[in-house]
Write a protein that binds this DNA or RNA. Structure first.
Lengths: 205, 205, 205, 205
DNA sequence: TCATAAGCGAGACGGTACGTCTTGTCTTGGG
DNA sequence: CCCAAGACAAGACGTACCGTCTCGCTTATGA
């Protein structure tokens, strides 16, 4: 993410950065990722192209940071500890279903959908970006599930030998794939079902 | 005088089509999807650009057909009914683990990996292509799982009320996501674990 | 003047060439040579930039050909043998003065002045262009003087041992320098004087 | 807060000025005028760009002063009254031929040739610069010729009614044009011939 | 049998965007 | 308050591809 001869970050224009984030997100939302261009972002942000090339290495990179910034902002707006924690009512199924319903809502919020879909797509084909996308955006959310599953193990609601990192994929991945690859519709009923199958399996009990 | 709308398919050059498929797959493998261009495919195939534009609507479209063709070829080579059927030994867990191990191998075969990753990525961002990709490439494989799960239901190995279309996502989606989004390593042990969790859940039995 | 991989001249668009010539001359006239850009020419001509880069190697090259074309056109318009011939009334002084007066008029015609000044300037600093400019534009006119001086030698009006190629510089170069380098005003009186000095010298007769 | 309009010349860094002159002349010599950039001069001189923009208005302006400085230096080095005076042996032809031979040598000295050619070219197209170039560099030399011709008139070697300012163009301009526009080779023999033609004309005596 | 109309290779065309370079202005921190 | 350093908005550079458009050249009927 470093550029050619190491520009001096302390002199960086905060105003330009903000304008670039805003322009990038707006354009992706309006015309889609492929038709969003660096020239377009620069023009919309009222910024020279070089200012973009100085601080980012690619369109994907700009958008990734813009989206990261958007997420952080949303977190801050939502209040300190409140959001992005998984509730622990004592009943794992109930808690997972609740969180997944929120996730369904968020996946359908166009404010997030278009840029995150664009980034996910780019990450599929561009491994470097994919890994950053995973690390910075996905991983933190997944860790919350790991914690919740561990708590459930302590409470005797999940078997001790279960690997939480794999367990969470039983509900996260199906939802992710339906969303990303249009392999099926997304609904509260669907996520509820996923949680049930994940907890109890499909075999006769 | 209408040129584009109705090219006469009966006069189509089979040689050019083959050359285009080969060039497209070769280029995607060598330089990656984004740096594969229609001009490049045409030049490599020794074909005029118009010959590509006459028969396909986009780079993604060319690559999709090329990949479809490659898959069919592979099927034919592998023998008539042999491949792509899920075995039915009577034990669902055993059968699924076996098939998933084959899938793991195939995902790591570069012959398939690069083009299918490229198509999957494009499909994420381009809904129309995504749906074709889903319908033509994914769906047929998924249906095999549906059939196998139905058989298992008939044999009393899976609960009657389970929706096979959702059940299969318990093992297919986690694997797909790890592969597509680099969210974790892929191994036989991992897929075996997925099958176990899917069948019996993570809750105490 | 050849471009990268030898474009096929027979397929060249005459319309585009004309449009480029017109746009180039117009722009040089309106904003001057340094602020005339290839992008500007392309935009004004309604032409892709590549069409310019395909056929010309530089802005100077475009303008040179445009100006050459303009000159040829002017010649054709003026009638076959009529223009650009030096009259031969039998009196060298009279003939030279008449031609130089026409030259003075032409140097002051803005239609010619701006582009030819621009080309001359570029030719000063760019030897390759300078030589083409000399060969294609200046030389033909100078040869007319050579012929006229030779005729005068035959008529006994100029000494036999005089080199016509040098002689003509006695009136052409002073005029050229005043025009190019603003070293002095240009008038009929001035050119008349030049002819007198050139014929009879400045020493007492 | 007015920065540009009135820089305080008394605080000007002499070291920077010298470094800029040296860098400018060196770059023009090495890569030619068009590829000499203000950024390049600043970098080479170890100077901020603003230091150039503060004191000069353009690349041409920098180079003009640098060249002027170089000429003055050369004058000083050559001794007080010695150089740049036209000898007066009593014979105008002899004196002019001698001076022109020195001029020929100087025109071929690369130390002077590249920058002065660059300045001359810029002056052709940029009238303001052209006039400064004329006034500061050309005029002083031409005045020497005016003086010498006047002396010759007093001595009866040149006709009284001859305008010295025009007379000198008979030998200066042809030489200048051959040099600037590559219209012919430059040699001692050539300049000698020019002097002869200028003094006695080309008509039979 | 032979014109005739299609597909084809080639590649010029009008465009758009790329990533780089330079301009002239502005800002920061050091002396 | 000059200076070195360099970020900034602006915009031209020359290149790469896009998708459309002609050009001649097979080639394969169908009149």
């Amino acid at each position: 993410m470093a550029t050619q001869p190491t520009p001096d970050a302390s002199r960086r224009s905060e105003k330009s950065r903000r304008a670039i984030y805003d322009a990038a997100l707006a354009l992706v939302g309006e015309v889609g990722y492929p038709r969003t261009t660096i020239e377009g972002i620069a023009a919309r942000a009222g910024v020279g192209k070089q200012t973009i090339y100085r601080w980012w290495s690619s369109k994907a990179d700009v958008l990734l940071e813009a989206f990261l910034d958007l997420s952080e902002q949303a977190s801050r707006d939502a209040g300190p500890e409140y959001e992005f924690a998984i509730p622990d009512t004592g009943d794992l199924a109930t808690d997972l279903k609740a969180v997944l319903r929120l996730t369904v809502d968020q996946l359908k919020d166009p404010r997030f959908e278009i840029p995150s879909r664009a980034l996910a797509a780019e990450g599929v084909v561009n491994e470097q970006l994919g890994r950053v996308f995973m690390t910075k955006l996905l991983e933190p959310s997944l860790l919350l599930y790991v914690d919740r599953v561990r708590a459930a193990q302590a409470a005797g609601q999940v078997r001790q030998e279960v690997d939480p990192r794999i367990a969470l994929e039983l509900w996260v991945s199906p939802l992710a794939q339906r969303w990303l690859q249009y392999t099926g519709p997304i609904s509260y009923e669907y996520t509820d079902t996923l949680v049930d199958y994940a907890l109890h399996g499909i075999a006769p009990r």
